[in-house]
Amino acid sequence: MTSQTTDRALDLTADPVDLTAALVDVPSVSGDEAVLAGLLEAALREQAPHLEVVRSGAAVLARTHLGREQRVLLAGHIDTVPIADNVPSRRDGSVLYGCGTSDMKAGDAVFAHLAATLPEPRHDLTLVFYDCEEVEAARNGLGRIERELPEWLRADLAILGEPTDGEVEAGCQGTLRVVVRTTGRRAHSARSWLGDNAIHHAGEVLGRLAGYAPRDVDIDGCVYREGLQAVRISGGVAGNVVPDECVVTVNFRFAPDRTAEAAVAHVEEVLHGFDLAVTDLSPGALPGLTAPAAQQFLTATGTSARAKYGWTDVSRFAALGIPAINYGPGNPNLAHTREEHVDAAAIIRCTDVLRRFLG
């Protein structure tokens, strides 16, 4: 263990609010999570001897072997977006400010605290603290774990500690990005009739998107609203040239009843006649609320589930056939902001709910 790790040793049995602050105070921007991973690994080995602990790159995994009927997996990413002058953490009354407080070191703190203080949980537990969630999917630590340690991702229910304001958000939307190219003929703008303006041709693309009627889809009582939007447009050569190419980037957020292939086919139908290229595609995740462990968790929370708007790593678990939900103490609207913060009461409330479910 390095001297830096020794100086910053984590106390997993401490108040989870204090533990959240301690996690925030260790910078862990995507790709630079090694120090925090080392601290978590050391703390779990020392303070939770009932757990098997392994390291995978900048990810830390731990699990019980109690022979319980069901296994629950608690997963949280330990990386953050780039720091915006908001580390170290600071407190203002009951509010804790800092990079990653909401997304999602508060959730990590809750999971780590429970791992250390519940030596005899009702369900067998697996903890996965992973790296590189905030960057491109190819670097996501869960993907590496699935390839190299697939047995660690087997469970009857996965709970992802993404910020949900302490509500249960089930499943997630899928996301698809395509680029639409329109072409024309370049000419001098003083003699524009000799050219064919590619930007003008993009007007029909934008018109179809503006007139698009999205679906509302009810799945297990969770209503997912789809959206098809232009998110970027580029074109033009110079101030005196009729452009011969224009590129419109389109994002489709689709309900999880559509497969990835069906989502592509739908966008191709909406934009029939135009040249499309898929640049990003991740399937959604069905709610999975009929699974017994999911029903037990809903009972423990005393609430009903709502649809998750946006894509999260529950999709990875759903693809493995594991029911997965999002549940964490942070406010998702504060994620990635300079003023990111979390209320201490929210951390305590989520800790109590999970302790009731697991203990």
Rank of each mutant, 00 (worst) to 15 (best):
S3E: 11
T5V: 10
D7M: 03
T13W: 00
D18K: 07
T20M: 10
P27Q: 13
G31K: 07
A37M: 02
E46I: 07
L66Q: 15
R68F: 05
Q70G: 07
R71S: 14
G76W: 00
V81P: 02
D92S: 12
K105R: 03
D108C: 15
P121Q: 10
P121W: 07
D124P: 06
E133I: 04
E133H: 01
A137T: 11
L153P: 00
I159V: 10
P163V: 04
E167L: 14
E169G: 14
Q173V: 07
T175W: 04
H188Q: 04
S189Q: 05
R191I: 05
N197S: 05
A198T: 01
V217Q: 11
D218C: 04
I219V: 15
D220F: 12
Y224T: 13
G227V: 08
R232P: 00
S234H: 08
G239F: 10
N240K: 11
C246A: 07
N251S: 15
R253P: 03
A265M: 14
V267A: 07
E269Y: 05
E269R: 14
V270P: 03
A277E: 14
A277P: 12
T279V: 10
L286V: 15
P287Q: 07
A291V: 14
A291Y: 15
A318I: 06
A319F: 03
L320T: 02
G328P: 06
P329F: 04
P332I: 06
R338L: 08
A344G: 08
T351I: 09
T351A: 13
F357H: 13
